[in-house]
Amino acid sequence: MIEPLVKVENLKKHFPIKGGVLGSTVGQVKAVDGVSFTIKKGETLGLVGESGCGKSTTGRMLLRLLEPSEGKVYFEGKDILSLSSSEMRKMRRDMQMVFQDPYASLNPRHTVEKILEEPLIVHGMRNRQERKKRVKELLEVVGLSSYHAGRYPHQFSGGQRQRIGIARALAVNPKLIIADEPVSALDVSIQSQVLNLLQDLQKEFDLTYLFIAHDLGVVRHISDRVGVMYLGNIVELSTSEELYDEPLHPYTQALLSAVPIPDVDVKRERIILKGDVPSPSNPPKGCAFHTRCPQAMERCGSERPAFQEMKDGHYVACHLYG
């Protein structure tokens, strides 16, 4: 059996809540509460869910931009949580991130050339002429021109800025790119261009993606497999095709019922969920979704469902499937 490029086991991130005169810990925000998944080399795993469900926190923990509270993260079989800061810096050459907001993720005081040169300098490319040549190559790879190198981020549109962000992630030839909602801040017409660019780059450079998003239409377009997150947990994980054709979890069914269908003759029954998403600082007992679930049973309020494989490669955490 081929070892996956990334393996995540029971990953958790709990943020302390401080209170009182002495600032002692009075509670915890359970942003991610026991997530497990694998990513195979060359595939795209989509991670979807409502805002605040823990998607971005999960992505940042894979790069150790946030330190996990518990769990394991393996990259090419190596436990990255056991690495020192200098070892982790070397490892980040193989693991890069494209951030959500192209307006905030680029330094407004630096030219594009300096932005793209920085990771090259950090990872040991000392020759200035080689760096200049690499910057030119990177700009052309993402659909920009070499003369853009002397410009500042404010001189570009949102789509162009995100292309620069992608170029920066590609600078050191990574194996894994974590794309944290890379098109959510862009116009719909630009979103498709950036998604197509990401797919072209994946084929050209044999990249592996963790693609984080809240738009199920976008995720379907780019992902091989999709994990659905709710309140810090993955509730369903399957191939993209099977998830959209035959969703098992009531939460996934509700999300998909809200996706617009381009064919006006096809009608889809909209599933309206009751109530609001519970607070991650005080999640419900049992199944976290039972307070909003239209199919909730008595045991859902007391017993947390196991994340189990129902079909070949199709996992779900729900008491409806026991």
Rank of each mutant, 00 (worst) to 15 (best):
V172Q: 05
V172D: 13
N173L: 07
N173P: 05
K175R: 10
K175H: 03
I177T: 09
D180I: 02
E181V: 02
E181T: 07
E181D: 02
E181G: 01
P182Q: 02
P182L: 05
S184R: 09
S184V: 01
L186I: 00
D187V: 07
D187Q: 08
V188P: 04
V188F: 12
V188H: 03
S189V: 13
S189W: 14
S189G: 09
I190F: 15
I190H: 12
Q191C: 14
Q191M: 14
S192Q: 13
S192V: 15
V194F: 14
V194S: 14
L195C: 01
N196Y: 14
Q199H: 03
Q199T: 00
L201S: 11
L201M: 12
L201E: 08
L201C: 08
Q202E: 10
K203H: 07
E204W: 03
E204P: 10
E204F: 02
E204G: 07
F205Y: 11
D206E: 15
L207S: 00
Y209M: 01
Y209L: 02
L210E: 11
F211Y: 07
I212Q: 08
I212G: 03
I212E: 02
I212A: 12
A213C: 15
H214V: 03
H214F: 09
D215C: 06
D215L: 06
D215Q: 07
L216R: 13
G217A: 12
V219R: 02
V219Q: 01
R220T: 02
R220M: 06
H221A: 11
H221Q: 14
I222C: 15
I222E: 13
